[in-house]
């Protein structure tokens, strides 16, 4: 199962290396990692999307992250009400008359064209990973020449619903 885990870490040199090294050594499968500064000076925020095999495995993951000296807080936010976003840049092959067609495909995704050349155009899309995936899927037929994703970054919504059933209303 895929989990979204966030970690607040002390921004010390080597911290990313230490954490990815640990994940690698302990055989965790990393889908994506995104790292950036947080609202507090000297504190960074990491967001991991990681594949775990079961609950015991998940528990190990959060415990091993917590064990890192630089890690201040670890949260598994997969089942919480969250905002999760990633950004993708997609370069697709396109000649003149395909452009309008592609425009039509991307507009419901609120994606934008950020570069155009004779044979290609580059599209930027932001959103939940499934939305990004869906757009990539639709663009496949045009030939994807280059693709890059930032990985998911996420945190909790300001308001957390009380009932557990509500939680699944906002899946990843």
């Amino acid at each position: 199962m895929k989990r979204i885990i966030t970690a607040t870490v002390q921004d010390r040199s080597g911290v990313l290396n230490r954490i990815t090294g640990m994940l690698h050594k302990r055989q965790f499968n990393i889908d994506s990692i995104s790292v950036g500064k947080s609202e507090t000076e000297g504190i960074s925020k990491m967001t991991f999307v990681i594949e775990v095999s079961d609950h015991q495995n998940l528990e190990q993951l959060t415990k091993q992250l917590n064990k890192q000296i630089d890690v201040i807080k670890v949260s598994d936010i997969t089942e919480k009400a969250i905002v999760a976003r990633e950004l993708a840049l997609i370069k697709v092959g396109s000649n003149g008359h395909q452009r309008a067609e592609i425009q039509g495909i991307i507009s419901p995704f609120r994606a934008s064209v950020i570069d155009v050349s004779k044979e290609s155009m580059t599209i930027q899309v932001t959103g939940k990973p499934d939305k990004v995936e869906a757009l990539i899927e639709l663009l496949h037929p045009y030939g994807i020449k280059e693709l890059t994703k930032t990985g998911v970054t996420a945190f909790l919504r300001g308001h957390q619903p009380k009932a557990v059933t509500d939680l699944h209303a906002t899946p990843l």
Partner: peptide, 11 residues
């Protein structure tokens, strides 16, 4: 003393 050892190999 190390929480990560608890439940690592044995439930």
């Amino acid at each position: 003393i190390d929480p990560a050892e608890i439940g690592k190999n044995i439930p």
